[in-house]
C-alpha cells in the first residue's frame, strides 16, 4: 500500500461520469442545481440526456426513472439529505419497486458540511437505503475506489447509491464491487472498516491481534468473505454513518455461530454545533485513540 495524491471524490465522480458518457450512449444525467458548474462540460455537450432540472429533487428521481424506462442508464446527483431523505419514496417506488436500474451519487456524507448544521448532514443515508429492497449501497474510501466501483457497477441494472465524502483514507487500494478486502489477519477478533473509516481504524488496530476487513459495498454484503475470516465470532464494525447499519447483515452471515458484535459509528443525535470534521470526530468519539480504546474494551 502506498500513499498517493489524488482527485477529491467529487471531482472523480465528475471525471468518471464524463468518461462513461464518452463511451456509452445509454448514459443520462440529471441534476438538481448542485454541482452544475462541475458538470457544465457534460451538460453542454450532451444537452438531450444531461440536464440540470433545478431544485426539485423528487422530480429529479422521477425523471431519472423515466430515462431508465426507455433504456437509459441514469445518474442523479445532489447533496445527501436531498438525494436520499427528501425523495426516499421516489427511490423506493420509481426505481426499486419498478425494477429499474440507476445511479445515485451524493456529496456531503454525514457531517462533511460541518459548518452548515443538521439540515445538510446525512448520516442516515445508508441505514435508510438499507430498508429499500434491491438498493445497492457503495461507500468508497477514496476517489480511486469510487472510480473502480462506479465503472464496475454503473450498468448492472440495479439501483445503486454511491456515498462520496470529503473524508478519505490515505491508502491506495484496488477493491472489487461486492467484495470485502482482507487488509490483515489476526486471531482475537475480526474488525470491519467501512469506506473512509479505514483512515482511523488502521492506526486504531495497530498492535492488536485482529483480522481487518475493508468494506466498500455495504449492500449486497459479502457474507462469504466474512464467514471465511470470522471464525472467532468476535466482530467489530466501524461505519462512517449512523452506527449499526451493518449489524443485521453481519448477524445474518454468521447466524449459525456464537457471535458478539460491537458497532462503532455516528451516534443518532442532532449536532447543534458548528466546527471542523476533526472537532465532530472528537466529540463523537471517532478518533483513532477512542476507536482503539473501544475495541480493547470489547475484547
Amino acid at each position: 500500500m502506498t500513499t498517493t495524491q489524488k482527485l477529491s471524490m467529487r471531482d472523480q465522480m465528475v471525471a468518471t461520469i464524463a468518461e462513461l458518457f464518452e463511451r456509452d450512449e445509454r448514459t443520462a444525467l440529471v441534476l438538481a442545481a448542485v454541482s452544475a458548474t462541475q458538470f457544465a462540460p457534460i451538460l453542454q455537450r450532451y444537452p438531450q440526456r444531461a440536464l440540470n432540472l433545478g431544485i426539485m429533487e423528487q422530480s429529479m428521481i422521477g425523471v431519472a426513472a423515466g430515462f431508465a424506462l426507455e433504456g437509459f442508464i441514469p445518474f442523479a446527483h445532489t447533496i445527501t439529505p436531498f438525494l436520499v431523505e427528501r425523495p426516499l419514496e421516489q427511490l423506493k417506488d420509481d426505481f426499486c419497486y419498478q425494477g429499474l436500474g440507476g445511479n445515485f451519487l451524493s456529496i456531503g456524507a454525514s457531517y462533511d458540511y460541518s459548518t452548515d448544521g443538521p439540515t445538510h448532514h446525512g448520516p442516515a443515508d445508508v441505514p435508510l437505503l438499507m430498508q429499500l429492497p434491491d438498493m445497492q449501497i457503495v461507500v468508497p474510501g477514496t476517489a480511486h475506489e469510487l472510480d473502480q466501483l462506479l465503472q464496475a457497477a454503473y450498468a448492472n441494472g440495479s439501483p445503486t447509491y454511491y456515498r462520496t465524502s470529503v473524508a478519505e483514507h490515505n491508502e491506495h487500494l484496488d477493491i472489487e464491487f461486492g467484495k470485502l478486502k482482507v487488509i490483515k489477519q489476526g486471531s482475537q477478533a475480526t474488525v470491519i472498516a467501512v469506506g473512509p473509516s479505514l483512515e482511523y481504524v488502521l492506526p486504531a488496530v495497530e498492535g492488536l491481534d485482529v483480522t481487518l476487513l475493508y468494506c466498500t459495498t455495504v449492500a449486497p454484503f459479502d457474507k462469504e468473505t466474512l464467514r471465511a475470516y470470522a471464525s472467532k465470532g468476535e466482530i467489530v464494525v466501524v461505519e462512517p454513518y449512523y452506527e449499526g447499519a451493518l449489524v443485521p447483515g453481519i448477524s445474518a452471515a454468521l447466524e449459525d455461530m456464537p457471535t458478539r458484535i460491537k458497532a462503532i459509528g455516528v451516534p443518532r443525535q442532532f449536532l447543534h454545533r458548528y466546527g471542523t470534521l476533526e472537532q465532530y470526530n472528537a466529540a463523537l468519539r471517532l478518533t483513532p485513540e477512542e476507536i482503539h480504546r473501544r475495541i480493547e474494551q470489547f475484547l
Partner: peptide, 25 residues
C-alpha cells in the same frame, strides 16, 4: 401497464423523463 403507481405525484415526473428520453432518441 407502463409504470407501477398508487402513491400520488409520481407518474407525471416519470412521464417527463420518458418524454425527454424519447426526444433524446
Amino acid at each position: 401497464i407502463e409504470i407501477s403507481t398508487g402513491s400520488l405525484g409520481h407518474g407525471l415526473p416519470m412521464a417527463v423523463g420518458v418524454a425527454l428520453a424519447l426526444r433524446a432518441k
